[in-house]
Design a protein around this nucleic acid. Structure first.
Length: 482
DNA sequence: AAAAAAC
């Protein structure tokens, strides 16, 4: 049963803002959470990625701020009445933008504070007075200590990506922030993933909470097609290009586990002819926001990123997510692939699994409670493999064959194994993002060696089209609010 | 095995 926003007891300005955004029907988490949040009770809410958790807490929160005036505040002052905390700066920006959209026809004011940017403009906004404050923990504490933000009249606290906010890395900051808030308040926790331990911990921050679980916690969105390919490091970049071309994909997130790896991979993919931006925590905030903007505007095809981008980012129509590295935490897998298949659209998640990653894949399998089939993705050689006796690789990054050009030295290099060079047609031409009328050429998967007995790959037929490994895309559903 | 969040 779908429910329309118009059926809700929301103030006219809020309904008008929702209508402006083109939303009509609520998602299940919205339909269930909004009436409960409207009662003012504490809530712990779990729903799959991309199903509109932000609207599920923002709309009823704004409604309550409108309906219940803060009687203890002097008319001239605008005390912070609602605080929304997030684990990354980009997410804080996004949620703040969304709240501002919902509140645009009301007199409620909101702003966002986060690190990596000048304190002054944020201070000016805070001093003007805001009812709703969106923030990342570290910078908020700075503002509290500088007396720029006074939180003793906060009535509502939201921990978005609550399980992350409650993990060991954030907990000390979070506890300090909560110590500045009144004891009597409403607390709302939302996430797509909750471990049993975090749930227990979360319970200690809530009073008589209502638990809303639209899906089993940690459940992946049904709109995302999940594929796992075994691919060694040298093959991973090519695997990405093959899948992009085969599926006619225009854009994708590419997740890696480290900041250094992120920068390196972005450079490599750029050399392969892909338009790429890198997003990780060692970049300046300016660069981070620019990278995200370049991806949103379609200026770049690939966003190579660390887990800074794993959670919450809502970019419309991202068709695919690659896990170039298998994430260390299974929960992060759920969030990473949740960047695609949002709001009912279809998405593809491809995880590239090296032989040392099998343990991590097992963890993911257990968490999402879905059987994972590891498929071989073995591509034809595009360049000679192996190394010289002196350890140099037989190929160079610029694509030139390195054989026959030994570095100076009296010992003559000999090539240990000289496999045949098979050219990969995609590798020779610059990558072009697919358009409606550029049908991708097909490419064959060629097995490199006989599969080991008893391995998963033993069941795979020797030669078949890569395209045949993929099923038809899922049709799009009607849009719902995010 | 890492990343994120303050200066």
């Amino acid at each position: 049963m779908t429910q329309a926003y118009s059926s809700l007891a929301l103030a006219e300005p809020l309904k008008r803002a929702v209508a402006d955004m083109g939303y009509e029907n609520m998602t299940p988490i919205q339909a269930q959470a909004i009436p409960v949040v409207l009662t003012g009770k504490d809530v712990m809410g779990a729903a799959q990625t991309g199903t509109g958790k932000t609207a599920a807490f923002s709309l009823p929160l704004l409604e309550r701020l409108l309906k219940h005036e803060n009687s203890s505040a002097s008319p001239a002052r605008h005390p912070v009445r609602a605080l929304v905390l997030l684990p990354t700066r980009e997410l804080a920006v996004q949620v703040a933008q969304q709240i501002a959209q919902y509140a645009k026809y009301t007199k409620l004011r909101s702003t966002v504070v986060f690190g990596g940017m000048d304190m002054k403009p944020q201070t000016i906004e805070l001093k003007k007075g805001v009812e709703v404050l969106v923030a990342t923990p570290g910078r908020l504490l700075d503002h509290i200590e500088a007396k720029n933000a006074v939180l003793n009249q906060v009535e509502y606290v939201v921990l978005d990506e609550a399980d992350r906010m409650l993990d060991i890395g954030f907990l000390p900051d979070l506890q300090r922030i909560l110590s500045y808030l009144p004891k009597s308040r409403t607390t709302l926790l939302f996430s797509a993933t909750f471990s049993p331990e975090i749930k227990r911990l979360a319970g200690s921050y809530l009073q008589d909470p209502v638990t809303i679980e639209v899906a089993r916690p940690n459940e992946t969105a049904s709109t995302v097609e999940q594929r796992f390919f075994s691919a060694q490091d040298d093959d991973k970049r090519r695997a990405i290009r093959h899948v992009l071309t085969e599926r006619g994909l225009k854009q994708a997130f590419v997740f890696v586990n480290s900041k250094l790896g992120c920068a390196r991979l972005a450079r490599s993919l750029e050399r392969d002819g892909l338009k790429t931006a890198a997003l990780h925590g060692d970049k300046s905030q300016d660069e981070r926001l620019k990278a995200l903007e370049a991806f949103k505007s379609g200026e770049v095809d690939l966003l190579v990123c660390t887990d800074v981008a794993a959670r919450g980012l809502d970019i419309k129509d991202v068709p695919a997510v690659f896990n170039y590295d298998v994430p260390f935490n299974a929960e992060d897998y759920v969030h990473r692939i949740g960047r695609t298949g949002r709001a009912g659209a279809s998405g593809l998640a491809v995880t590239l699994v090296a032989s040392s990653d099998t343990r991590l894949v097992t963890d993911i399998e257990k968490l999402i409670k879905k059987k994972i089939e590891l498929e071989p993705l073995e591509l034809a050689e595009d360049r000679p493999r192996g190394r010289f006796n002196d350890g140099r690789r037989a190929w160079r990054e610029d694509g030139e064959d390195n054989r026959g050009a030994p570095r100076g030295g009296r010992e003559r290099s000999s090539y240990r194994s000289a496999p045949a060079v098979v050219r990969d047609p995609f590798f020779d031409k610059p990558y072009e993002a697919a358009t409606a009328d550029s049908l991708p050429p097909s490419w064959e998967v060629v097995p490199k060696a006989a599969p080991a007995r008893g391995s998963i790959s033993a069941n795979i037929k020797p030669r078949r089209k890569l395209a045949a490994l993929f099923k038809a895309p899922v049709p799009e559903a009607e849009p719902t609010a995010q």
